[in-house]
Design a protein around this nucleic acid. Sequence first.
RNA 1: GGGUGGUUAGCUCAGUGGUAGAGCGCCUCGUUUACACCGAGGAUGUCGGGGGUUCGAAACCCUCACCGCCCA
Length: 857
Amino acid sequence: MTKRELAPSFTPADIEARLYSHWVESGYFTADSSSPKEPFTIVIPPPNVTGNLHIGHALDQTLQDCLTRMKRMQGYEALWLPGMDHAGIATQNVVEKQLAAQGLTRHDLGREEFVKKVWEWKAESGGQILGQMKRLGDSVDWSREAFTMDAILSQAVLTIFKKLYDAELIYRAERIINWCPRCLTALSDIEVEHSDDEGELVSIKYGSGGSEIIVATTRAETMLGDTAVAVHPDDERYSHMIGKTVTVPLINREIPVVADSHVDPAFGTGAVKVTPAHDPNDFEIGLRHSLANIVILDADAKVINTKSAFDGMDRYEARKAVVDALRAEGRIVAEKRPYIHAVGHCSRCDTTVEPRLSKQWFVKVAPLAKAAGDAVRDGRVVIEPAELAPRYFDWIDNMHDWCISRQLWWGHRIPVWYGPNGEVVVVGPGESAPAGYEQDPDVLDTWFSSALWPFSTLGWPNNTDDLKKFYPTSVLVTGYDILFFWVARMMLFGLFAMDGVPPFGTIVLHGLVRDQFGKKMSKSRGNVVDPLEFIDKYGADALRFTLARGANPGKDQALAEDWVAGSRNFATKLWNATRFAMMNGATVEGELPELSSLNAIDKWILSRLAETTAEYSELLSTYEFARASEVIYHFAWDDLCDWYLELSKEAFASGIAASTQRVLGHVLDQLFRLLHPVMPFITEELWTTFTGGQTLMTAVWPLSHASHVDKESESTVAQLQRVITEVRRFRNDQGVKPSQKIPGRFIAPADVAEYASAMAFLLKLELGEFTPSASVEIGAIKCELDLSGAVDVAAERTRLEKDLAAAKKDLATAEVKLNNEGFMAKAPESVVKEIREREAVTKADIERITAQLAALK
RNA sequence: GGGUGGUUAGCUCAGUGGUAGAGCGCCUCGUUUACACCGAGGAUGUCGGGGGUUCGAAACCCUCACCGCCCA
């Protein structure tokens, strides 16, 4: 194998594109369903076909790639399956906007032409995110790329629809649903976002004479559709009115006063107006009291059917007009404005949602939700971090039936056909409707097909090799924000479709990426960052490492450009350390030398490597990405670069370094493997260059060698580190420049004295005969120096006094404990022993420092 | 209104009973056999307030205050 050289500096752009296409061409990402290896499967949370890679995707995908790459190296048949969601409303909106620019609506084209247009749009401008994922380094299996509107996935939709219908879990009913008057479609509960908005609360007097009653509302225009006033049955204020009627002003309709225990007597006057066709709670009251549903708003939220001057007005216009008219009649008894209250908005276009009575298709969720809850309750599916499980239960145990029909054209059309005499037929895959039947014009909620993602992408309903090999998937990695949108729905459908086998073993939830001050990123705040810009500027590895390092389970993370620059610095550090190692003959060739033949420094780094490998692997396997990143970062930078390389320089300089060259080679080789899942590009480049190997992608994951853990060497090196730090501090205090060589020598026990030349090299000391003018004492170790007379006594005194104060404080803390009877009686022996040792050490320090101070004069 | 998470260094955050940590920022010195995208040294905290449990509390319990998120 021929070894290449490393460029003098690291430029991510020079290696990323080259390595990525090499990986794809070599087929490293492609999973094999016939492999005997144990499977590891992740399906990507499918981004919208309209989407671009934002920082949240970058986080989500970094974590998934990290797990996939690690498992691949650990010998699993790893499949990370990519794809996209057709994103019904979002995509339709995009194409409609294009048409609008030409002065057209989708109706001008007609359904078939419009859908064709959407497909054309997808071919031309959709799926930009896929190319951007490549920039991040995602090791997804492109040969299995899926799209929710693909033929196979559409077949899955038909199949599950029929299956659910036959099990009586899908039904059609007239209900109050959330309606977006702009998108002109029904929405599910979770497609509605609530915010506290400014509105008004007006109190209106209904009836006259002895039968007056006051009701309050934030939507005055709905009074046009009122069919009752409701009060609490035990409310004595109104008991005389129950069963009587009152007149609705303006339209002069006589409506009954009904008693309903759901009315809160403490809110407002205790009496509420009831508009069953335009409010979900009122609809329920209407059912209980057989009230009429009078529809007074059309699909565009314009007033209709009132045979009044309000007909044709927009809802807001009507609201004002109704209040004005009532005021003119003297029927407004109170007005509160602004009145802050929760208002629902369309999650796609932010239009205020209008509750609307209409006929829609629903999934009956109760039995499905029970199974989905139980799967987590009994541990077949684990939610990480566990703290987020209550949220899941809270929602899934109280889930309303799911409205799945959408009045759109882009999506899976509802496979129900209606006959001329009201017949209803559900048409499964490969079936066709009887002649003369007409298909339901609506399409399914996008999340209906997304709910099938973990198995529709593997070929279900066909029993494919992929399905057999890779289902159920191993881990689902996603943000907690779509726990309800998507994760819960996959649980509902997965368990149902796959005979009770849940779609994944573990749900790993991460948080949101926020700005550097922890504020939510939003266009209006102007604090949105573009991951691609960071990749351009600092490299994909730097961005990935930053995101992984911030990923504490289930917690949001702040992100600043400075942090990404810091990760780039880490990458540069690795690059330079490798260059240095290669310059000094580090190698992976041949067997690792016998431990007993190594010096303490070599044994120490192997020990640290073993410990780090074990800890890091464990943390990654338990989805502790932040802690894992921290551990490996400090091993690489502190242990390896700051100490091992520095302590080894003397050996390299002296030319007697065969063991160290091999040990260093080993440590780098293992470090690159460990870091590869998080920083795939630079590790691949360094490793292949350094070792001459083919690729890290399929290299074996490091094992932690317990036999390499060596506490004795760790203790020796800890002493060397202390001596070096203290002497450096002394030099610094004394104003000796870092590069200035001065005479010095160590008086130390044999295990430390053995490394005198290594320490001297680092400290720029010239060992040899001289008359010392100063000394630094570190416990039992003494370093004598010659400062050529000019010792800065004041600086030395300051330092010693500071050390003395610290030692005295430590001693006092220890003595308080040791003099405490309770502590001595109840604290565990190991703790008492530790405090005793601390007492002894600090006492010795105080004695030594006091003597030094006395000698200073 | 119901849940739920948080409050630790200037900033962003780790730290689930035994002398308070990291990254960035800050101060001083420095072209020393990798690296100034660097090295060395340094400063910085009544761990939100109050009470309790304990020999011992940033951590456990109670309570208050403030901030956030989810749901209604």
